[in-house]
C-alpha cells in the first residue's frame, strides 16, 4: 500500500495518475467500493479523509474498515488531505475528526511501502 498526503487543491490525484499512467486503474472517491470488481486493477482511494469523517459521523470505526480494505487490496494507493495544520477546532466533533484522521494516517504510513507528500503538485517521498 502507498499513502499520498497533502493540502487541499495541491494536485494529489493528478500526481498519482501521472505515476501510474499505463495501468488499468479505478478511483474510488471517498468510498471503499463501487459495485464493480476491483481485482486486477490498480485501486486508488481518493479523499480518504472524507471517508473517515463519514464513518465518525455514523458511529463506525474507520480504522477497522480501512485496514480491512488494505488487507484485501494490498497494492492500493490511499490519498488523504492533510487536515491537521491549523487552529484546534472549538467544536468537539471537529476535534475528534482531526485527531482521529491524524492518528490513522500515522498508522497507515507506518505500514505503507511508500509515503509521498504533495505540495504545489510536486511529490516528495517522505518514506
Amino acid at each position: 500500500m502507498k499513502l499520498v498526503i497533502g493540502g487541499f487543491a495541491q494536485g494529489k490525484l493528478d500526481y498519482v495518475l501521472e505515476q501510474i499512467k499505463h495501468e488499468d486503474y479505478m478511483v474510488l472517491d471517498g468510498k471503499l467500493g463501487c459495485g464493480e470488481a476491483l481485482s486486477g486493477k490498480q485501486v486508488i482511494v481518493d479523499h480518504l479523509h472524507r471517508l473517515i469523517r463519514e464513518c465518525l459521523e455514523s458511529g463506525i470505526d474507520p480504522e477497522e474498515k480501512i485496514f480491512d480494505f488494505v488487507e484485501k487490496h494490498p497494492g492500493c494507493i490511499l490519498i488523504s488531505d492533510e487536515i491537521g495544520n491549523g487552529i484546534v477546532p472549538v467544536d468537539g466533533f471537529e476535534r475528534e475528526y482531526r485527531e482521529r484522521t491524524g492518528r490513522l494516517l500515522i498508522k497507515l504510513a507506518a505500514s505503507a511501502q511508500e509515503v509521498v507528500r504533495v505540495i504545489c503538485g510536486i511529490g516528495q517521498k517522505i518514506k
Partner: peptide
C-alpha cells in the same frame, strides 16, 4: 502561501 492544510 501555503494555506491548504487546516482541513476546515
Amino acid at each position: 502561501n501555503n494555506v491548504f492544510e487546516d482541513g476546515i
